[in-house]
Design a protein around this nucleic acid. Structure first.
Lengths: 208, 208
DNA sequence: CCAAAAGTGTTCTGACTACACCCATGC
DNA sequence: GCATGGGTGTAGTCAGAACACTTTTGG
């Protein structure tokens, strides 16, 4: 019996929130989809194991990664204690592993079901925490480049919340709460008026 | 190396929030105050271990008890993973253990310092979560009897938040949010006008 | 008659919602 | 000239904060 970590890795694709799942190559639950995870190595910290596993699966580090909850006995038989983490990554910067017996793949969050080990509940809980933190923190920082337009940020929020937002109210909130600020620079995308670039006030996870 | 639980057990005494600490009888940190905790037994669940430890220390069960956070390597040398829980108990119903080498005692939350194993940080975090949950849930249910007056509930809130509250605003909030409701009965305490008795809408932990 | 606690309403402010039009650009 | 997306202001509603007096009762 050992301790394990399990990861809920979210990304935003074509305006939809997706989560990374792997197809289990081994029993139990062989062939079913499940959240990626792994056993804690000797001398490794929890956060370290989560970050290592995240880098293994997606190739990224330095993104939003936070402890979610600790479960017992939903492991794969090898783990007694499972510490769940959730992360947000920019899909454009990830490189999924392409092993034959391990196929990781993005799955839309709406529509996951019949996963191994009650993993739906973990995803649902994680999604709720994400939605909550979106309202008052900078969690989205790891989904966007250094600078971005407000519209880009709004698309990300809409994808995560699953509902359209009002442009003016959105701007007031994220600027008013001090989540983002204007950079003074503008950018032009194709046939449009130049748009103001914004940046996150901090690219570190906010401590509430 | 094993998994352990550690407990932040709060109570309210004379209008102050207190936490239960034990004086360590064994190295490391012998003689220092620390949060009570224990090693997970074979086949025991996390929540089960927390509830057992809580009953060991205070004699109570069926109170608010919730998982807080999971730490690594702040154990006492025997534990690698430490899952922290926090609880709220009615001091009037507790019976502390009175062992020579183990003296548990209530300590006012304002004024704890130099505890073993960074335990202050756990207490601080726990206190913050408690204050947050107080605003929109029924966490206080395990500090009060079945029925109580609004003033009694308000005293509890004030003790936990550490600041006085307005009577009228307080009533509007707890009634308006559906945390408590009138029972229709009244009670008289000494030389006072009879007071309406209230009860919690539910005495189970609210799931947000 | 005095001390102690219970009960009750109104006003102000700040946050959030809903909502519609004009502007700059590239084609 | 038109399609695309960027940018902006106002009115309404609701929750929370501040605030003072009257009532009942026991001693």
């Amino acid at each position: 019996m050992a301790t394990a970590v399990v990861l809920v890795i979210f990304t935003v694709q074509r305006d939809g929130l997706s989560v990374l799942l792997i197809e289990r190559a081994a029993d139990p639950c062989k062939g079913q989809w499940a959240l990626p995870g792994g056993i804690l190595r000797e001398g490794e910290s929890l956060g370290g194991a989560a970050a290592r596993k995240l880098a293994d699966e997606t190739g990224v580090s330095d993104v939003f990664l936070e402890q979610l909850f600790t479960f017992d006995r939903l492991g794969d038989g090898r783990a007694e204690i499972v510490v769940a983490y959730f992360a947000l990554v920019d899909v454009a910067r990830t490189r999924l592993r392409a092993e034959l017996e391990w196929r990781p793949a993005w799955h839309s969050v709406r529509g996951v079901s019949s996963l191994a080990f009650e993993n739906e509940r973990i995803i649902e809980y994680s999604n709720q925490r994400l939605r909550n933190k979106l309202e008052y923190t900078n969690v989205a920082y790891s989904l966007l480049p250094e600078q971005f337009t407000l519209t880009e940020l709004q698309r990300v929020h809409e994808a995560i919340l699953g509902e359209p937002l009002d442009k003016r109210n959105f701007r007031r909130r994220v600027v008013g709460l001090g989540i983002v600020r204007e950079t003074g620079k503008t950018v032009k995308y194709g046939a449009h008026r130049p748009a103001m670039l914004f940046e996150f006030v901090s690219r570190q996870p906010m401590t509430v």
